[in-house]
Design a protein around this nucleic acid. Sequence first.
DNA 1: CTGAAAGCGCTTACAG
DNA 2: CTGAAAGCGCTTACAG
Lengths: 339, 339
Amino acid sequence: MTKKSIRDVAMRAGVSVSTVSLVLNGKGRISEATRKKVRDAANTLGFILDHSASKLRSGQSTLFGVIVNDFSNPFFAELSAALETEAFANGYLTVLANSNDDLHRQGKLIEAMVGLGVGGFVICPAAGSSSETFELIRARSLPYVICVRDLQDENADFIGADDYQCGVFASKHLVDLGHKNIAMIGGFQELATTRHRIAGFREVIDSRGLSVQKELILPGPPTLEFGREMAIRLVQSGQKFTAVFCYNDIVAVGVCAGLRSSGKKIAEDISVIGVDNLPESEAAFPSLTTVEIYPRSIGRRSAEALIKALKNKSNRKEKVILPLQLIARASTAKVSAEE
Amino acid sequence: MTKKSIRDVAMRAGVSVSTVSLVLNGKGRISEATRKKVRDAANTLGFILDHSASKLRSGQSTLFGVIVNDFSNPFFAELSAALETEAFANGYLTVLANSNDDLHRQGKLIEAMVGLGVGGFVICPAAGSSSETFELIRARSLPYVICVRDLQDENADFIGADDYQCGVFASKHLVDLGHKNIAMIGGFQELATTRHRIAGFREVIDSRGLSVQKELILPGPPTLEFGREMAIRLVQSGQKFTAVFCYNDIVAVGVCAGLRSSGKKIAEDISVIGVDNLPESEAAFPSLTTVEIYPRSIGRRSAEALIKALKNKSNRKEKVILPLQLIARASTAKVSAEE
DNA sequence: CTGAAAGCGCTTACAG
DNA sequence: CTGAAAGCGCTTACAG
């Protein structure tokens, strides 16, 4: 059971190595009898094709390079898991790494993955990335798919959620409940994701003849802690607000904790809405209103796009904006009459 | 900026390819002047070493194969992220895949990763795995580290949490609060993790002169839904219980939801304890008592163990059982007087 | 329908 | 201290 080469298979099957290679790759016109001999020999020997050698000679790779911001974040964890599943189902393995939203680290990762010989990339660009960030990938003529955060890079496919719509859904829901003073908490301002959500939010507010209050827009890290701190600060500031649109469910959990510790009741006093629809969000108390953005779809579609690019070599780039869904639950309610 | 080979570097630096290779790998005794010439040439050309070629010739790989049950599970997401970070900090890239607790899939993944040329493995074995499951890895003389779920495999390092202690901590906490009728919900029975926790639980119960009630031990999938269902069923059954020791925080969230929907108050009526200490658990309402098992430490230590095995070629296998910590919060309370 | 031969980009004894 | 040459395990024109 030590390592076997294509030569060992050839000897056992009584054919040449070329024939073995051809059979293994389903190429050439080999008689069914020979094919069977080769496959049997390969099986009994426990032969496993050496990808390094194959890649070296053919240039073909069955490896995906995937870089996300941080896959311990549930959203990216789901996305990456779905991506990996789809990739493996199609014969690709996935090298997965975190950029930690660090441009330099992202650059090192790309370089290392290129050296490794990945066939292409799926990348959720680190904050601050631009099209030039991916020069090396283009120089090597490798296909790449950008996901989640749109960079308007014409050289890549893009798969992401409709963040503008996300802002629209969340704010419409709140405005329909009578809220006029709505805070937004979390999300890095340099990300298209954040900007698009804010744009959707503005659109709704404006269209209802209300006005967006700058002091209530609080961008920042998408963390529980940031949500908690901002919620506490907002209450202390005495500014009037009756609802909070959070960057994601984790931020929302923090906001709820902060509000509670400040003596506010969720829904009754302040409505809270998140984004992501984490499994826990439905079972939380009170259950969290949120926007489902289907990270698994984004992951799966990204894998599909890369597979397509790897096979077709067509340079038609596609841009997929996936729909999302508002999930209304108990953390949002009609604005209280007292105001 | 197209692909450059070691030959291009050699020509530009005016030396032979052997010298370039030696410099790049920090081997041989090359004069500082030559080293500089080579490094400069490599930099200006944007040279990236071809890992496939290097691996083919030397047999050395800078790739980790990592297989976990499901890295969209927050525990494994944290573990894998820490593993990847530690690996990359040491010059290794990580191929990460989910076994979905499916033995067959795990086997295919191992085969694919061996073919890819990983230098070694970190595996959290799919339910049902045994030492034989990893024959192929041993046949290729690749080092592997087993994490989280102990298989008593002497050919591998093991890094995991002290699950027995976990059972002890949780049950001691509950017993100290006066609970006598304690349910356990979630966790596959075939996993060492589950069995060890139950063993710790039994130990404490027995040592206090109480007795473990079989009907209250409900193993099963570690999911929110399972927690919810079992909680509801338990209340409906009319069996007496005042506390629930959940397999993890996700199950605990489900249990809390189930209890609430059955008219029970958390802590006041029924105490609930989880395991994992997810970020959300502290901010949940009520905040969740749990056992912190430091998944990041497990991930980091697993990477370290594999790096060591890759470098030293020593066959001294180590077994690391990491300590954990009880985090007492609001979801557990003294048993109510009424009983 | 099948085989012999070249070569992908490296590393590594071996000379010198 | 540095170079020429062999070879890792494949794939791919090219013959036949």
